[in-house]
Amino acid sequence: MANKLTLFHLSDIHFGIEDNRALDWVRQEILARKPDAVAITGDLTMRARRHEFAAAEKWIRSLPVPVTIEPGNHDLPGYHLPQRYLNPLARFEAFRDLVERRLQVDGLALVPLNTNVPAQPRLNWSKGWITKDALDDCLAQIDSLPSTARVLVTAHHPLREAGTHGTALTRNGSHALAELAQRNVLGVLSGHVHDAFDIMEATPNGPVRMIGAGTLSHRIRSTPASFNELHWNGEELSVRVRNLEGVASREMMIDEVPEDAMPPREPGEPVAPVGHVPRTDPPVD
């Protein structure tokens, strides 16, 4: 059996409106626990401003563990269209070595899947879109690994497409999931919706586990700021949602990925009572 691995899965930090209390706590947890890797699944910034990226770089570079970063839709310049089209990741330059970085730790690989495009033929550009090139690159990386390797795919947008009445949260998400189901993929890590989840998504080739992390910003949706702590022992992947409010993991998780991923409240507005989503399984810590 492989050594037990610990991964921290962070998302939607949104430097610019970051929750510094939560970030200080997460950093101390990383310093104390030294997880085998940290995966950040997008939206490091709020408006893709230079000072937001500078703050993100300073915080991430202070972490003494391997880090991989997926860009999010908020990390693409929305106010400077030439740069958005020609070099959408230009402001990651200071830590470009960490963006879409494949990590391998003791038989477990973290493989990136880019779900962002500079422009889309629909009004809401915040939603995900998986291009053929992006999926081909992800699958090629997976297929190049040893046959015994297990994989966690890192993406920003959940690969949820069904049930959104033609305005799909992530276009080509269903196709991507079906392809991933044919490989040694333990799950797809993502963010974007600002609430945690752990959902088995059906595909024609079998189910794929989708694991979402909450936010570490003040832009909360229905649960407090949080991150995911994952444990892999060579046979089972467990997920615990960590938060400063002491809320149990299952009470932090939503049952479905919402079509509208925009948080419904402004910073400073109170959070709805946690535990608002009925579940059939008992809460676990």
Rank of each mutant, 00 (worst) to 15 (best):
G187N: 06
A202I: 00
T164H: 09
V105M: 05
L177K: 03
V257M: 06
K4T: 10
Q28Y: 05
L139S: 14
I220G: 09
P66Y: 07
I142N: 06
L135E: 14
T170C: 12
I69A: 06
A261F: 07
P64S: 09
L44D: 09
F227L: 07
R21V: 13
F92G: 08
N87H: 09
I17T: 10
T148Y: 00
T170W: 01
A54Q: 08
D106R: 00
N184P: 13
P118R: 02
E18N: 13
E161I: 08
D285Q: 14
K4A: 13
I17S: 14
V99K: 06
A272F: 09
I17E: 15
G214Q: 05
I211R: 02
L86P: 01
D143Q: 09
S126P: 06
F197K: 05
G212W: 00
G187E: 07
R61K: 07
I211S: 07
T215W: 02
T167A: 14
R171F: 03
G191H: 00
L180V: 03
G214R: 01
E18R: 05
H156P: 12
N184I: 06
R27T: 05
R50G: 09
H9R: 01
D12L: 04
R96I: 05
H218E: 10
Q182M: 12
R160V: 11
H165W: 11
M252E: 12
M200P: 03
R219P: 02
V208K: 02
N73E: 03
D97T: 11
P88H: 02
V111Q: 06
P64D: 10
Y85E: 15
P118K: 03
L177R: 04
P112H: 10
T45Y: 01
R122C: 11
L10F: 13
P273W: 04
R49S: 12
E70H: 04
Y85G: 08
G42P: 02
D106W: 00
S126Q: 14
G128Q: 11
A140N: 14
V185K: 04
S126L: 11
W129N: 15
G166M: 08
L10T: 07
D198F: 10
L139Q: 11
K132A: 14
D255M: 07
P283R: 08
D143N: 12
I220S: 09
V153E: 13
V239W: 00
R240G: 08
V208A: 07
T68C: 14
A54E: 13
A37K: 02
N205E: 12
V38W: 01
P82Q: 05
G16K: 02
L135P: 13
P270Q: 11
I60K: 02
A213E: 12
L186H: 07
N184H: 06
T167Y: 10
T6A: 14
E266Y: 09
G212R: 00
D143W: 00
R91Y: 09
P263T: 07
G212I: 03
E57A: 13
E229P: 09
V241S: 11
E29A: 15
A149C: 13
A176W: 01
E245K: 04
R122I: 07
A2M: 06
P112C: 12
V105T: 09
P267E: 12
I13F: 05
T223N: 13
L113E: 08
D75K: 04
K34W: 03
E245I: 01
A56T: 04
L230Y: 00
V193A: 15
T215H: 03
P207R: 04
A261C: 13
